[in-house]
């Protein structure tokens, strides 16, 4: 049972991102999660030394390596998603730049009426155009 609480940190580091992602400071770069992983890593190393140093008392020679591997896999998955998969955004070299004229468009509003960029611009000071990635 000694090693289980070590893996807890790694699990906490992994799943708590859904909580920390609500705040910009911990979402844009996952500081809090990396700290939890670091705490888990230190505990794992200490635990492994104990397990192999006094295997009879802790009975950790089998569980130690298994749970350590599990913890490393969890950390690996977290790093893969956060530092690789989320950054797989295609470059958009053709996207309009500052100073250029925004391409004209007409879309339906919530009532089904057509709204064009020109209409919006003539009625207001500025138009914020947000491309939202969500599909849910």
């Amino acid at each position: 049972m000694v090693a289980l609480d070590r893996v807890f940190f790694e699990l906490a580091g992994f799943f708590s991102y859904t909580f920390f992602a609500q705040f910009p400071i911990t979402r844009d770069f996952p500081w809090a999660n990396l700290l939890l992983f670091a705490a888990g890593g230190i505990c794992l190393v200490v635990g492994l030394f104990r397990a192999f140093g006094n295997a009879r008392a802790y009975r950790g020679k089998i569980f130690g390596p298994i749970l350590s591997t599990l913890a490393i896999l969890i950390f690996g998955l977290f790093s893969y998603v956060l530092f690789y998969e989320l950054r797989q955004v295609p470059p958009s070299t053709g996207a309009p730049r500052v100073g250029q004229k925004a391409p004209e468009f007409t879309l339906s509003d919530q009532d089904g009426r057509d709204v064009s960029l020109r209409d919006l611009g003539s009625k207001s000071k500025a138009v914020a155009l947000i491309f939202y990635r969500g599909f849910w």
């Binding site: 844009d28 500025a126 914020a128 155009l129 491309f131």
Partner: peptide, 23 residues
């Protein structure tokens, strides 16, 4: 992909944000 534009009343783009991380 996520993107944000700010367009002034004459249709000129004044500000663009193209993220490299979808989060």
């Amino acid at each position: 992909r996520p993107a944000e534009f700010l367009i002034d009343s004459s249709g000129i783009i004044r500000w663009v944000n193209l993220t490299e991380n979808i989060a």
